[in-house]
Design a protein around this nucleic acid. Structure first.
Lengths: 226, 226
DNA sequence: CCGTCAAAAAAGATGCATCAAGTATCGTGT
DNA sequence: ACACGATACTTGATGCATCTTTTTTGACGG
């Protein structure tokens, strides 16, 4: 996460929370993985308290679940839950795109285009991690441009839940994740809210197809909901 | 909160979190109030740890803020932030109403009408607390009927942020909070998604007017954002 | 009477010891 | 060899002591 601030987490104190968020989004956890506070504490070179704090926050975000009081895991993502998240994202990112189209400055457009260029480079280099980060950076730029911090926080949480599931689907997706970003930028340039909204919806629907397909295939055996 | 489960909080452990959520929603905290962990611990008859856990979760929900590391407060609600939350609610509760209209059973309708009746009684009795609780129960019933748990969680968090601000505005509102609920139920009866969506939007817009007016008046002097 | 600085008190963060509950392991008896 | 049970271990929750930082407060000087 070099220059595009992936997620504005760690809004309050909590370095561990931020690190775990990153890990989640970068796909360094697999659905079903079990987390142990003491292990993480050792891993992070700290005591259990900060880890517990982070875990608690993540659990509150529903990014991790307590299957039983002593069994902390990365939850699966059922198809119905994915569809729900997708429907919410459509509404919310649609709102963000509309608003952004109305207020976007040329500097905003340039920032988006810079992300797009870097994303192209990442795809060309086959850098899956950087690809997902830049895809995410693009999506989070819209509410930021629109000046909608609450919306940003909601999307951040949703992303946390999808994190462990999208990174695996990235390679099969290939260019699917970025192709639909260009029409968004075009719509923002023309200050066309309706077009911007439709473009981002297209991206969510079509760009997310590989993820949905992966969930539909066999992955739900792990998909235990909280 | 006798029979209508106001909020499904305390999803994982954490009785204190649930209690604080209730307190927030029932308006027992004022914007600007300072929270002290040790005081709350004494108040709840427990040690600091469970309180800290709850505070941390609430802070993660942005229902309370750390103005500085040692200064925990109920945040104000700026006009722009209220407008943002309102816009989000319109999109999200609209989605919930649409979906609910498609799947609502007669039992669902009856549950809604029961809430309405109780709310009428609460208004007649001038019971502000019960009125806000039942208003809230109505709004949370829609995503529940629709089978949208993620949406429910998002709205729960937004409500937490509005909590300290709506209860004060309830009395001046009078019937405004309930009048617009009837068209929602009618639309659900007819299984008319578009009408249901429009009805709930009306409620958010018109029913929320007293709140907005109160914020617009002098209350923003306390309105410090995180 | 007001401003400034320092000392003390307040208060959250951290670490850790202990508790309780669940899980796994090992041994015994059939 | 297998089933059952007791013991030991794992692991999160809780409570608490301590540390650090901030805020209050009070005294002194202007």
């Amino acid at each position: 996460m070099p220059e595009f601030t992936t997620l504005d987490h760690a809004s309050l104190n909590g370095a561990v929370y931020g690190a775990l968020c990153d890990a989640l989004i970068e796909g360094r956890f697999q659905p079903g993985d079990r987390l142990k506070i003491r292990d993480l504490a050792e891993q992070f070179g700290t005591s259990v308290t900060p880890i517990r704090d982070a875990i608690l926050r993540l659990a509150n975000d529903e990014a991790i679940t307590f299957r039983s009081p002593r069994d902390i895991r990365i939850p699966g993502l059922s198809e119905s839950r994915y569809m729900e998240i997708r429907a919410i994202r459509i509404r919310l990112e649609g709102l963000a795109a509309e608003t952004a189209a109305q207020v976007a400055t040329s500097a905003d457009i340039e920032a988006l285009e810079r992300i797009l260029r870097e994303n192209e480079a990442a795809i060309a280099a086959g850098d899956r991690l950087k690809g997902t980060q830049l895809n995410q950076a693009f999506h989070f730029m819209l509410p930021q441009i629109a000046g909608l911090p609450v919306l940003n926080g909601i999307l951040r949480r949703l992303w946390l839940q999808m994190g462990p599931h999208i990174s695996d689907a990235y390679i099969p997706g290939g260019r699917a994740m970025i192709d639909h970003h260009y029409p968004v930028v075009e719509a923002l340039k023309r200050h066309d809210p309706a077009a911007a909204s439709m473009a981002i919806v297209d991206d969510i629907l079509l760009g997310g197809k590989p993820i949905l397909e992966r969930i539909e295939r066999g992955e739900e055996r792990i998909a235990r909901r909280a």
